[in-house]
């Protein structure tokens, strides 16, 4: 059991800051849904460093990202299973 970043998409879709996607040290881990205008996390790549939490709280001041236990996730997104297909995931993260 370990912690991964989870983005509250109701809060995130209200803004368009995208800062977490730029400050994450892992490549293609915080992805962006251009249709639903929200960021979401590929949990299989998240190392749980919490940099995005600091960015969202202190820099963006949106408080949309929390660290939660991986088995508490309702529908975890795994990039290794889904592959890199923005056309498939756009709009699927309301």
């Amino acid at each position: 059991m370990y912690l991964v970043a989870h983005i509250d998409q109701a809060i995130c879709s209200e803004t368009a800051c995208r800062l977490c996607t730029q400050y994450c040290p892992e490549a293609n881990t915080i992805l962006y849904d251009n249709a639903a205008k929200t960021a979401f996390v590929a949990v299989d790549r998240c190392k749980g460093c919490e940099i995005c939490v600091g960015i969202c709280d202190d820099l963006a001041k949106h408080h949309a990202i929390k660290m939660i236990m991986i088995n508490d996730l309702e529908s975890p997104f795994e990039l290794s299973k889904e592959g890199f297909h923005p056309e498939k995931w756009d709009g699927k993260h309301p």
Partner: peptide, 30 residues
């Protein structure tokens, strides 16, 4: 940079430590 998260990146999964600023810099360099 503003499109990050929407395009496939040159950098892939890597074994660097969690939260490493060097990795962030390398990712942005790419």
């Amino acid at each position: 940079v503003s499109e990050m998260g929407s395009f496939k990146e040159v950098l892939e999964e890597h074994p660097m430590c969690a939260g490493c600023a060097m990795t962030l810099f390398i990712r942005l360099t790419m």
